[in-house]
Amino acid sequence: MKIYRLHTKQNLPISIEEAWSFLSNPTNLKKITPDYMGFNILSGNEKLMYPGQIIQYIVTPVMGIPTKWVTEITHVEDKKYFVDEQRFGPYSLWHHKHFLNEIPGGVEMEDIIDYKIPMGIIGQMVHPIIVKPKLNEIFEYRRKKLIELFGEYKN
């Protein structure tokens, strides 16, 4: 069983309060997801983030095939971190930790995602060709979109 990890960090010139307000609102995920992903929240975004919250999405990550994705927000510590875990969707495992840290002149956002691809050895063969590049592309889009929304961090 191969478990992969994606680890990203990004600094933004905003307060921890502004960062938390934006990132802890599930509706904002659509704003930082590429349009081609066909991201659409079906339910669960009626309230700000809380432990036990179930959020249902439709995404079209590969070849325009709609996929239902259900995540649970399992842990939340106000203005510090939250964790979302896939309950149903394209991965065998998806555990995404979002951390916020105050830094001089802004905030550091850190994402740590541990994930497993289904289909055993076939999934492992597809990972470096399709899955890893697609995840990197999505997070690079997010990085650029957050700069567009909040400005570039300069220290």
Rank of each mutant, 00 (worst) to 15 (best):
I14W: 03
L48S: 04
G106I: 11
L23V: 01
I129W: 09
H75C: 13
G44H: 00
T74E: 03
M49W: 15
P51A: 13
N101V: 15
K30V: 12
Q86R: 01
V70G: 05
W69Q: 10
Y81H: 11
G120W: 05
E102D: 10
E72V: 07
Q53C: 10
T67P: 03
H75N: 14
K30C: 04
L42Y: 14
W69R: 00
P90W: 03
P104W: 03
H95D: 02
P133C: 13
Y91Q: 04
I73H: 08
L42Q: 00
H95A: 08
I16W: 01
M63D: 06
E46K: 07
V62C: 08
L29P: 00
P104G: 02
V126H: 07
I113T: 10
K80H: 12
L42T: 06
I14K: 06
Y36N: 10
I65D: 05
T74P: 07
N28T: 09
L23I: 04
N45H: 08
I113E: 08
G106Y: 03
W20T: 11
I117S: 00
I117Q: 01
N40C: 15
S24E: 09
V126I: 05
T27N: 14
K132H: 02
H96L: 14
I129S: 14
V126Q: 10
L23N: 07
V59C: 06
V59L: 13
P13N: 14
F22C: 07
P128M: 04
V70L: 11
Q53N: 11
I16K: 14
Y115F: 10
P61M: 02
V70R: 05
Y81I: 11
M119S: 09
R87E: 07
S43R: 09
V62I: 14
Q53L: 11
T60I: 11
K47G: 09
H75K: 14
Y81L: 15
G123L: 05
V126P: 00
S92H: 13
I32H: 12
M37R: 04
G89N: 07
G105W: 02
P118G: 12
K47Y: 15
T60P: 12
K68R: 11
D114C: 09
D84M: 00
T67E: 01
V70W: 03
N136F: 13
T33S: 13
Q56S: 06
I41P: 06
P26L: 12
K97W: 10
P104Q: 11
E108P: 02
E110T: 00
N45W: 05
L48F: 13
N25G: 05
T71W: 15
A19N: 08
K79G: 12
D114Y: 09
P26T: 13
Y50Q: 04
I112G: 03
T67A: 08
W94T: 10
N136W: 15
V131T: 13
